[in-house]
Design a protein around this nucleic acid. Structure first.
Length: 719
DNA sequence: GCGACATTGTTTTTT
DNA sequence: ACAATGTCGC
């Protein structure tokens, strides 16, 4: 393609970024400002104009989807398939390095990847082996601790024993967990990154090789990087390689899982001579929507600063619907969508966005009853289904018999009489001799420790896997999967469940064969792997699509988090209520509240033409009624952009609708009332939920701040 | 090994 | 409210 064309399609700021001299650059790309476009054009520019070989470019993203899209668009732009260009996720690229240099990384060649669920199972097992009570040491907390440490680049030996008993125990758990991983030849997600970082750091020749190879690094969604990812980037970049980082501090919504927006600031210090380019022209939304978004985000402190603008029209005002309850809210949205569709628009151009997944239910019920097709994003994905994970565990044992987590998973799945008793013996034996469960089981069967029934059962399982290994030798991947499904006994086992659940499990197993048949080795991605290992890694790193039928014209339903990066002509932002959004768990801390606000900003900026906000006066949540005030975020949008709407039809609501007094009164107190508490002093009731003895009120105390109190115990005095 | 019953937690999610 | 675990008795 003609070089000049690369720049022709861009605005000034975009062009400045794309054609920048080869130095580090920070692109602050507002929502809808053509971020991916700039990234893709920059790569094309480097290859075509700067004469950089595709081999010299690495582009890192967070999701596989983003990586695939980027690769596709680069190839579209250049008109040829680009091989040798490393485009992938942090985890995918780390994985690639580890497979290529498994020996130097001190990993077994057939190492397997644990997803979060596998990891949690393993943590539980480690806790049991340390004889720790799960009540006192919640597995999830231990898992969180381990991942947090790894995300900071810390190994157990780096952690200080602060003298705190909890901390000491956590370090002990982390150590034991890590030892279990090493013995089994498995790595968790964080380990992929940390291990590859250590690989490069501890092998200067390797590091030099990769630093020499990659002449340019590109990072997408830079605001979402955590400490470890940023350290990984810095290591690979070294002192010479320019990094092209694209991000938006206003769209940082993953702080809760370790993302550090601060990395954006550090970037300018860590990479000397970094230029900053702001992309502020928005090509997505109407001026009204953008102005609302700008006004909202102004309420956050410490932003790098950005003002989105558009050359387009004002567009329609933002609608605000205040519903009686969540059913009324869903009904209103459904009607609006029906009208929209009847006016000749597509349903798939409409998104219903909410803060938490539980909110989707009412919408689903309403859409079904009104016969509006919809898709919900973000359920269980294909490779995460229990039956698929069972099947994959068998396949993993074929690849690596010392994979203890997989052994544990299927040793008695389907049930074959190997109970806790027997497994306890096997585990103990394995621990004593420092060998894998597989080896331990083998030796126990050989020896005389196991008796009659248990011995037969274990021998049966070992024989089954042995036989699978032999019969799969040299077969194409999908035939291996077929063999495994035939011989494992999983199908007869699931057949016992006569419900459609059992039926669908069997269908999924069939689907796994299809997936295996369709699996193609990618020469870049899977260079150092056999077909089975490549397939298993693919399954762990790319869990497959959630639900979603791209052919049907469906309303799109998803959480605000999963909406990031997407756009729709019409967007409904639902459940705009204090406690729900901002979520109750994030309301107290200023930092977390700001993240909620950014989430709202993300939601608003998804809309191209029309945005509707909705909230409900009463909402049934966790079994009891809650009465939430409208979200503060609604108030942060200037009134001039908002138009309150009423339902077009009379609802049946008045039948149940209690009087205003009854509505806001509980146990003799009402919202707005001033009360006194023995310990917290004076305050005002701002909210309540539940009835009778379980009724709780939220009181904003003058001195002690906002608290939820159970009315029955709080002994509040009216002031 | 399975079904019945109790307990528990319930923001967001990728890899 | 409700689903997803965990526990217990046969």
């Amino acid at each position: 393609m003609d070089v000049s064309q690369l720049l022709d399609q861009l605005n000034d700021a975009q062009r400045q970024a794309v054609a920048a001299p080869p130095q580090s650059l920070l692109v602050l790309a507002g929502a809808g400002s053509g971020k991916t476009r700039v990234l893709v054009h920059r790569i094309a520019w480097l290859i075509q104009v700067e004469g950089i070989s595709p081999l010299g470019v690495m582009a890192v993203t967070f999701t596989n989807k983003a990586a695939n899209e980027m690769r596709g668009r680069i190839e579209g732009l250049l008109g040829i398939p680009v091989s040798g260009l490393w485009v992938g996720t942090f985890h995918g690229l780390s994985h690639r390095l580890l497979r290529r240099h498994w020996e130097k990384a001190k990993l077994p060649q057939g190492f397997q990847i644990l997803d979060s669920e596998d990891q949690l199972r393993l943590v539980k097992r480690v806790l049991r082996s340390l004889d720790l009570d799960e009540e006192r040491w919640p597995p999830r907390q231990a898992q969180g601790f381990i991942n947090t440490q790894k995300d900071k680049g810390l190994r157990p030996q780096h952690l200080d024993d602060t003298g705190d008993a909890t901390n000491r125990q956590m370090i002990r758990i982390y150590s034991a967990y890590q030892a279990a991983c090493e013995r089994s030849g498995v790595v968790d997600f964080a380990e992929l990154l940390l291990r590859s970082l250590e690989l490069l750091r501890d092998n200067p020749d390797l590091l030099k090789h990769y630093q020499g190879r990659f002449r340019h690094l590109m990072v997408d969604e830079f605001q979402d990087t955590n400490e470890l990812q940023y350290a990984w980037l810095r290591l690979i970049a070294g002192t010479q390689t320019p990094v092209f980082a694209v991000g938006d501090d206003d769209q940082s919504i993953y702080g809760w899982r370790g993302a550090k927006v601060e990395n954006i600031r550090s970037f300018q210090k860590d990479f000397k001579g970094t230029e900053v380019v702001r992309l502020e022209q928005n090509y997505r939304s109407t001026a009204t929507i953008l102005n609302a978004a700008n006004a909202l985000i102004e309420n956050n402190d410490g932003r790098l600063g950005k003002q989105l603008w558009t050359a387009g029209d004002q567009g329609e005002p933002i609608s605000l619907y205040t519903a009686y309850d969540e059913r009324d809210e869903a009904r209103y949205v459904a009607e609006q969508i029906r009208d929209w569709f009847n006016q000749g628009n597509q349903r798939k151009e409409v998104a219903v966005l909410y803060r938490s997944n539980a909110q989707s239910r009412v919408f689903e019920e309403t859409f079904i009853s009104m016969q509006i097709p919809y898709v919900v994003y973000g359920g269980l994905r294909f490779f995460e289904r229990a039956e698929i994970k069972d099947a994959l565990a068998y396949m993993r044992l074929l690849a690596n018999t010392s994979d203890d987590p997989s052994f544990e998973r299927v040793v008695n799945q389907p049930p074959r009489g190997i109970g806790d008793r027997t497994m306890a013996q096997v585990r103990e034996f394995a621990r004593a001799k420092q060998i894998s469960l597989w080896q331990a089981a083998g030796e126990l069967v050989q020896g005389s420790q196991l008796t009659g029934r248990a011995r037969n059962a274990v021998a049966g399982f070992l024989g089954l896997v042995h036989q699978l290994i032999q019969s799969c030798e040299g077969l194409p991947l999908y035939e291996q999967v077929e063999h495994m499904i035939d011989q494992s006994g999983l199908v007869p086992h699931f057949e016992k469940d006569k419900t459609d659940k059992g039926q669908s499990r069997i269908e999924n197993l069939q689907e796994l064969v299809t997936a295996a048949r369709g699996f193609r080795l990618d020469p870049d991605e899977h260079a150092d792997m056999d077909e089975l290992t490549a397939f298993l890694s693919h399954a762990a790193l790319e869990a497959g699509e959630g639900q979603g039928d791209p052919w049907e014209d469906c309303v799109q339903m998803m959480t605000l988090h999963s909406a990031k990066g997407l756009e729709f002509e019409q967007v409904f932002l639902c459940g705009m209520e204090e406690g729900l959004f901002p979520h109750r768990m994030s309301m107290e801390e200023p930092g977390r509240l700001e993240e909620e606000r950014r989430l709202c900003y993300v939601g608003i900026t998804r809309a191209q033409k029309k945005l509707t906000l909705s909230c409900a006066e009463r909402r049934r949540l966790f079994g009891s009624d809650t009465y939430n005030a409208p979200s503060r975020f609604i108030g942060e949008i200037p009134n001039e952009f908002i138009e309150e709407v009423r339902s077009s039809v009379m609802t049946s609501e008045p039948v149940y609708r209690p009087s205003a007094v009854a509505d806001t009164e509980v146990g003799g107190f009402r919202i707005g009332q001033h009360v006194r508490h023995a310990k917290f002093g004076d305050g005002m009731i701002t909210n309540y939920e539940g009835h009778g003895s379980s009724a709780r009120v939220q009181v904003n105390f003058e001195m002690a701040g906002s608290k939820w109190l159970v009315l029955a115990y709080a002994n509040l005095q009216a002031v």
